[in-house]
């Protein structure tokens, strides 16, 4: 598979603080990647390094198998970082024209991309008069100007209203469906769950998980149980190798599975042991629970 970005043992220190610690991963063509992590976990710093605005302390990264210099590679990349940064006194069209000059792209692309994000009728308004949603969409148009091989988005829905968030997500999905590789950094889990195929979880600059989103979620699930014979049930579960761990919250017992088992098998087992259940639910963890588990427990 063709690799677009390779990061090897990347480290960034800001004085005493290590923002990114020995991070390695590879972005392959055609997938939608999510970088998940709480605020301050090093997402933006990592993106800043590969985008040539933050200097690395050690380690390496290479674009497109290292065939070009970073700033030439960036001409094939479309990226927006947190806030849309444009010249407030220029119109939307003029701002994009400037980006065309930097990226050596033909001006005919401007109207095309403005149409994609639905800003064609506002192209002659000054950037400072745009709403935040419009600014963000202009940023996406700007990132798409060069028909990039990879689109990098850092918190693209930050500070937007629900409609704005919806518009941006629809746009991202549309772009992804056209085969553009996307790297999306976010702390919003459902955003990543809805949009991404692969995920990288960071905490304090360290990689906690890297792989497919569905594999991350696909643990064997857990049972939520209640019974009058509370003590018997807990001791049975704790001694059974099929369960990794058992949690008690008041009457509710949560038992995490070590291997696949469906609810009816479990129910039958309980019946044989003479334990009657008053409550039995089998559930799978959401990305959110999985994420919290990853970021809290380690």
């Amino acid at each position: 598979m063709e690799s677009i970005l390779t990061i090897k043992n990347l480290t960034k220190k800001f004085g005493y603080l290590t923002a990114v610690k020995d991070l390695s991963f590879t972005i392959n063509k055609g997938n939608v990647y999510g970088i998940l992590g709480p605020n301050g976990s090093g997402k933006s710093t990592t993106l800043g390094i590969v985008l040539n605005v933050v200097n690395k302390t050690s380690g390496e990264f290479s674009w497109f198998d290292g065939q070009t210099t970073t700033h030439d590679a960036l001409k094939k990349v479309g990226a927006i970082i947190e806030n849309p940064n444009f010249y407030p006194y220029m119109t939307g069209y003029q701002n994009l024209k400037l980006v065309c000059r930097i990226k050596n792209v033909d001006y005919s692309k401007i109207d095309e991309k403005l149409a994609v994000v639905g800003l064609l009728d506002r192209k002659d308004s000054k950037f400072k008069n745009f709403s935040l949603g419009m600014k963000q969409r202009l940023a996406i148009a700007s990132a798409l100007l060069n028909d990039p091989e990879i689109l990098i988005l850092d918190e693209p829905t930050n500070g937007l209203d629900p409609q704005g968030i919806h518009q941006i997500r629809t746009l991202i999905k549309q772009i992804a469906s056209e085969g553009t590789t996307i790297l999306l950094a976010s702390h919003l889990l459902d955003e990543v769950e809805k949009v991404c195929s692969h995920v990288l979880v960071l905490r304090k600059g360290e990689r906690l998980y890297s792989g497919r989103v569905d594999e991350m979620i696909s643990s064997h699930g857990f049972f939520e149980l209640k019974s009058v014979q509370h003590g018997t049930l807990v001791s049975f579960l704790q001694n059974n190798p099929d369960f990794i761990s058992v949690k008690e919250e008041g009457e509710l017992i949560t038992a995490f599975l070590n291997q696949p088992m469906d609810a009816s098998t479990f129910n039958k087992l309980m019946f044989e042991k003479g334990i009657t259940l008053s409550h039995l639910v089998k559930r799978k963890e959401s990305l959110e629970e999985q994420f919290l588990k990853l970021t809290d427990n380690n």
Binding site: L51, N52, V53, H71, L74, K75, V77, I81, N85, I102
Partner: peptide, 21 residues
């Protein structure tokens, strides 16, 4: 000063302008 206050210097570099340029 404007490039810094508008943060456009950052965007220019991200868009593929080298620091030398």
């Amino acid at each position: 000063g404007n490039e810094y206050s508008n943060k456009t210097i950052k965007q220019n570099l991200i868009d593929g302008l080298s620091k030398k340029e």
